[in-house]
């Protein structure tokens, strides 16, 4: 399986990663090699096998509907890159 440069660009965009043009080819090569490794999976027929998403067959525990977390905005925003009037700031979002 080989991944082309264009595909790397597409994936990088989906993953919101800015990849330098100079590095794209090496990413393409490495990703292709990884997919070759992963392709070994095709050797086994898994028809009818239930996918395992969790090591145990246990069910979701439910939390009581109680407010336990109080305002800690000051603590949280002390480590934020840009805030004003209690809001996190980002470059203008256009709808």
């Amino acid at each position: 399986m080989s991944i082309e440069v264009d595909e790397v660009k597409k994936i990088a965009k989906l993953a919101c990663l800015n990849v330098d043009d100079a590095d794209i080819q090496s990413y393409a090569t490495n990703l292709s090699n990884i997919l070759d490794l992963v392709a070994q999976m095709d050797a086994v027929d898994t028809t009818g096998v239930t996918p395992m998403s969790h090591p145990f067959d246990v069910v979701q525990r439910l939390r009581e509907d109680v407010v336990t977390d109080l305002d800690r905005r000051e603590d949280f925003q002390a480590i934020a890159p840009a805030v004003e009037d209690g809001l996190y700031l980002v470059p203008k979002v256009l709808e």
């Binding site: 939390r63 109680v66 407010v67």
Partner: peptide
């Protein structure tokens, strides 16, 4: 009363980011 995955309040109209 609280959020779907956390214990913060869902009340409407609070100061920004005080119910997180």
């Amino acid at each position: 009363r609280s959020k779907i995955f956390s214990g913060a309040s869902t009340a409407y109209g609070a100061e920004p980011n005080t119910q997180t």
